[in-house]
Design a protein around this nucleic acid. Structure first.
Lengths: 223, 223
DNA sequence: TTAAAAAATGAATATATATTCATTTTCAGC
DNA sequence: GCTGAAAATGAATATATATTCATTTTTTAA
């Protein structure tokens, strides 16, 4: 079992040790990815050194290079694999319902759960989404996965328009951007105020949806 | 006159050349800041080299160091001075009205105008606001100015609550974060879709305010 | 138990670029 | 035009760290 947060979703590890060698290699690779997540998430790409990451993973510096070609590739793999996990979850869960509002709700819940478990990764994620120009590894901004992620939310937005849940005068990708931003702002606020103890992030999903759909105006009782 | 975007607001340049030496020095300093804005905004802090910046400013590498102690200080000065300009504008203009909705509107308009003129700076700004942890120069995240900027919007939010414009169950700083995120998302979208030609950013202010206050739901005509 | 193979090590190397500074150019006042 | 001061130059230096690789340690299988 992996005490860090890296997911085995993509590792394809068989329960029976049909191929121990390969399995072990994948596990070690995941250890390094977890260490990288920890260090990159806290220090940012440039301030994080390969030695930091190696130490965090309890390896010597050179060992990291047996698993990843170079620093950029390590970072790229990390971002890709985490995003793939998140996207897979979201797609799987939202595909199960037809209603746009329900899809939005599920999207939010999956995302909030995911980042509650992957707080270090959230900082990486937000930076990569923040300013595509400054994307550290240009492969990320242009990756099929990044486009797919955006397309997925835009698709939900389009459906929401068809179902008259969302105003029609809003470009779906713009709507997706706004929805994403609101949820990121709330996650950021939750992280900053360190509410981990008292409140689960998932509980914010109702609030976020309210704000996105109904806005910040009071729901007219006393006006 | 400065063909770049750096503002003279803080330069305190007298119309009559009482002190040409000092004035010239300030102008050259501003040239370097403009060059830095251009390069940092496009490449990001780490990929931007001092040589890039010097070349952009039409100086030799060493000359930059006659005006700024080191790269971090150059970056810090840039961020500080631009943010000071923006904050001064916002404070000045919003102070002139009492109505919270009017304040929000003015805040938006000033911000949109500002970033329409300072597109390179927007990317820097959004990164610095994105993930405080990864703030490039730790002085920025902790600077009085950064706090003041947030406090200023939070203050408007508090007033909006008092005036029943905004729901009361929302922490003012959280509301400020959400409001900021929405506007940033819209600016980002505008930049990405390269609408400079056809549509001024300022024209988006009505839309942003609508979304923030009233949400993305259609304004019930056909339901 | 042993020897070959695989994995890990970490000191040494390569590289990139921030920063310095001896030299050159420009400028101001005479 | 000349001279000393100020400004600018850009090649040389310093530094940090990504990457490599000769050596050591561990594992495997007979």
């Amino acid at each position: 079992m992996n005490i860090y947060s890296f997911s085995a979703r993509e590792a394809g590890i068989p329960v029976f040790a049909i191929n121990r060698k390969e399995r072990d290699r994948k596990l070690r690779r995941m250890d390094i990815l977890s260490a990288a997540e920890h260090v990159f998430g806290r220090k940012g790409y440039y301030k994080a050194t390969m030695q930091d990451i190696a130490r965090q993973a309890q390896y010597a510096t050179g060992t990291v290079y047996l698993y990843f070609k170079d620093k950029e590739t390590l970072y790229f793999s990390l971002v890709e694999e985490k995003m793939r996990d998140l996207l897979a979850l979201i797609k799987e869960r939202t595909a199960a319902v037809r209603d746009a509002q329900e899809k939005l709700k599920i999207y939010l819940e999956e995302k909030l759960d995911f980042f509650e478990k992957n707080q270090d990764f959230f900082r990486i994620f937000i930076l990569e989404n923040g300013a595509a120009q400054a994307s550290i590894d240009s492969r990320i901004a242009t990756s099929a996965l990044a486009k797919e992620y955006l397309a997925c939310i835009s698709e939900i937005m389009r459906l929401a328009q068809k179902q008259k849940l969302v105003r029609a005068d809003m470009d779906p990708s713009q709507g997706a951007g706004i929805f994403r931003s609101i949820s990121n702002a709330v996650i950021m606020d939750w992280l900053k105020k360190n509410m981990q103890q008292t409140l689960s992030l998932r509980q914010m999903s109702r609030f976020i949806l309210d704000i996105f759909l109904g806005g910040a105006r009071p729901s007219d009782e006393t006006k």
